[in-house]
Simulated assay, not measured.
Amino acid sequence: MSSEIFVSHAVRDKPLADALVDLLQLGLNMNSERIFCSSLEGLGIPSGANFVDHIKSEIQSPKAVIALISPNYLASQFCLCELGATWAMSHQMFPLLIPPLKYSDVQGVMTALQLTKVNHKDDLNQLRDQLQTVLSSKGAPTARWENKRDKFLNGLPSILDALPQPLLIPAAEHEKVKRDYKDAKATIGELEDHLEQRDALITQLSAAKDKVEVARIKTAHSSTSDTLRTLEKNLAKKLKELPRVVAFLVFKELGQREPIKLDASSAKEFLTEVQSAAEGKLVQIDDEGLCSLVSVHPKIKRIEEAYQPLRKFLDGDVQDLAEAFEDEYDTLLALDNREYWEARLDPRIRPIGD
């Protein structure tokens, strides 16, 4: 027949198990026969008995299993087997968290279990009350329990300091190492990609035959070029949603910052398309014939949202990119340059009727 209380602990934690059993015996007025603790004299394995068989017998039907969850406990395969058996048999379990372990260190092992801190007075009081309920025991008077509890807590720091520690990495530290390793691999991968790109650039430049081809290759391998192309494609996509006359007005108003004035010399086709855009509320025409974009129109809003990042980018330090662009296209990289708009943003950017 197994004992009522099974103390599951690592052999290296024997001094701690000894102190806890003393607290249970003296503070709860409990007979030694009711407690099984494998490493303690008189409470453990009888002389001549098979160790494993006796442990298996004792863990069959205790009323309570007290597990001393310490670094040594987590490092012991035998202790984890006892823990697994306790779960499998649905025994009433009382896990005691032993410093320096924290809740975060045992979340994977102790999922859904209420942990009791062995160095907290209130937690020990709760353990006492729960054990009395499970064992249907009245226990020792409260004053006696508090006296023994306080002596246990006072002596606990020196006991814990003297316990041998396993080579165990806390879960949080292990996760940090894993994250650092993953980040390092990603960085190395990026550097290798960069080196491959540089090697490809050198190879292509060595084979280039003229200045225009060199400029094209430099642009293709430039990170700033990637940014520029992304911004240009975003604006070009929005421009294609507009009638060509409105796209031209976008170039004049945002790029060249010049108003367009309708007069008798304006081409008939241009006047017709402007009037159609005005009827669609994309542009407005004042009494003097000046045309302007209707900024509250959703399509015009999207144009301005795409235009501003491109302007901000080109207002920055893009000298090398501009030189490569000018060598390739034989024109200026500038938002007030119609040839730039036609080449990279919208080929429709030209006066209608020309």
Rank of each mutant, 00 (worst) to 15 (best):
W145F: 15
F248E: 09
P95A: 05
K148G: 00
A334T: 07
E328L: 08
D346N: 12
K102F: 14
M93Y: 09
E241Y: 00
E213A: 15
K299P: 00
A306Q: 00
L228Q: 06
N337R: 09
L28T: 03
N29T: 02
P62E: 06
S225K: 04
V177E: 06
P164Y: 01
L83I: 08
K211H: 12
G44A: 07
K102N: 10
V109I: 15
S136K: 07
S292W: 02
A247K: 01
E273Y: 03
W145S: 08
K151G: 00
T224M: 15
L127P: 06
D13R: 07
R244Y: 03
E41G: 06
A207V: 01
I59W: 05
S136T: 06
F251I: 02
K312R: 09
G108M: 08
Q204M: 07
G44L: 10
R229P: 04
P100R: 06
L335T: 02
D354A: 12
A172K: 05
V118M: 13
V212I: 14
V283M: 04
M89E: 11
P62M: 05
E342A: 14
D193Y: 01
A67K: 02
A200E: 09
P141N: 10
P166G: 13
D183Y: 04
V318Y: 04
E213D: 09
W145P: 11
A184F: 03
V7W: 01
D180M: 07
Q165A: 15
L335Q: 12
Y181Q: 07
L68I: 15
L242P: 00
E213F: 09
I285Q: 00
G280Q: 08
G139M: 08
I169E: 02
S76E: 13
Y340V: 03
F248H: 08
Q165H: 11
Q204A: 14
A208V: 13
A88T: 11
K209Q: 14
R144H: 11
Q132D: 01
R229S: 10
E279C: 00
W341R: 01
G189W: 02
G139K: 01
Q77K: 13
A19D: 11
T86K: 09
K121A: 14
P298T: 00
A343M: 14
G84D: 10
D193M: 14
I35T: 07
T219R: 15
F152I: 13
D226N: 05
V274M: 10
I35R: 04
M1S: 06
D129C: 03
S266V: 11
D210C: 10
L127Q: 06
A64E: 01
L290S: 08
L40I: 09
A19S: 15
M110F: 10
V106L: 05
L310N: 00
R350D: 14
N29E: 09
